[in-house]
Amino acid sequence: MDSRISAVFASLKEQNQMAFMPFITAGDPDLAATQQVIRTLGASNVDMIEIGFPYSDPIADGPVIQASYTRALESKVSVSQIFKALGELDHEELPPLVAMVSFAIVFRTGVDQFLSSCVESGISGLIIPDLPGDEAAEVFEKVKGAGLDLIQLVAPTSPRERVRKILKSCSGFVYCIAVAGTTGERERVADSLLDQLKWLREETDLPLAVGFGISKPDHVEPLRGLADGVIIGSAIVRRFQELADKTLSSEDLQKELTKLAGDMVTATHTK
């Protein structure tokens, strides 16, 4: 049976559309707000939602997301509370949720325990950014066994030979890192990325989603025909910084997210 994530990509492909996946941090500023934002994004017809589990030492993430993690941890958000809050959502009404979580957290909880909590709380897949393809084989088997997807990252620096190895432990979709470096907003899409997407397409039938450095509808057009989806993180999480700085009210935050999600859905679902 197709996973929920595969089913989403398959139905978009039939209609010649791309997927849009926003990223938010669980617990910034609190879990009730996270639940509300997930519902708002779901109502905007986004195709998946990536949920970042706050971590104290996130080396893959840029300053905006790290600051968000720090805020969430300062408000004492725990892993079990995150699972509980996600479990309270009505998942039939929502797009698939993908957890972005450090291996430090997964290992500490215990891989089996963490995966069963994912299943119970309605999570469909995991991205473990610090568990590179080489180290992921064992975890991949367990993730598959739990009926979930393990999404692997491919970097601009990954040689084709490495990518073949990485793809062996990948399902759901391939997360293509648009720029060498951390998460964050960039002005334009790099040509090297477009080249990489072309040869990636030859290597795998899995959908290709582009993240890191994607922040606005303008970034979608150059990817059309090459990528199957886009992910936006920092440009969204930055709004939560404004919320923390009190330069944005929570009503305006919801409005802005609805607007950004609406614009991105329009851009990605345009045939």
């Binding site: 950014p129 610090d130 590179p132 080489d134 970097a155 990954s158």
Partner: peptide, 20 residues
């Protein structure tokens, strides 16, 4: 070759660093 000292060590870093 994988950087294991017994069960310890290894590489838990983002893919961006693996080639380096």
């Amino acid at each position: 070759a994988e950087g294991r000292f017994g069960e310890f060590g290894r590489r838990f870093v983002p893919e961006t660093l693996m080639e380096a």
